[in-house]
């Protein structure tokens, strides 16, 4: 699913809102989230997951072409930890698919 598919699906379910409004709402939510992380703050969505920053210490890397050492500064990278409901729903569906496949192969 892409961002535009997400917007289309939301606007079908929120028929009283104009497509443009839903599009702007999705962009505003994502911008709010990106701004929060780039200010060094966390995002916590119960049942979905949390976003935080992980520290990466400075290291010496190499220029892949010349092989010369390059010192790379410390940085932060975004990290997502799925919440309990998301973890369970994603894995539940996989288990059901497995079970269905097994009973199909037994039936044939």
């Amino acid at each position: 699913m892409t961002k535009s598919e997400l917007i289309e699906s939301l606007s079908r379910r929120q028929a009283q809102l104009a497509y443009k409004d839903v599009e702007l709402a999705v962009k505003t939510i994502l911008e709010h989230m990106a701004n929060t992380l780039s200010a060094g703050e966390r995002i916590e969505i119960r049942g979905f997951g949390s976003f935080s920053l992980h520290y990466r210490p400075p290291r010496v890397g190499r220029n892949p072409k010349s092989g010369d050492p390059v010192s790379l500064p410390a940085k932060y990278v975004p990290h997502f930890k799925p919440g309990k409901q998301l973890r369970e729903r994603v894995d539940q569906f996989r288990q059901e698919q497995d079970d269905a496949r097994q009973s199909e192969s037994q039936a044939s």
Binding site: A34, L37, S38, A39, G40, L53, Y55, P73, A74, K75, Y76, V77, P78
Partner: peptide
């Protein structure tokens, strides 16, 4: 997003 977060560091 990665570039924006690195700027925070």
């Amino acid at each position: 997003l990665k570039a924006r977060v690195e700027a925070y560091a």
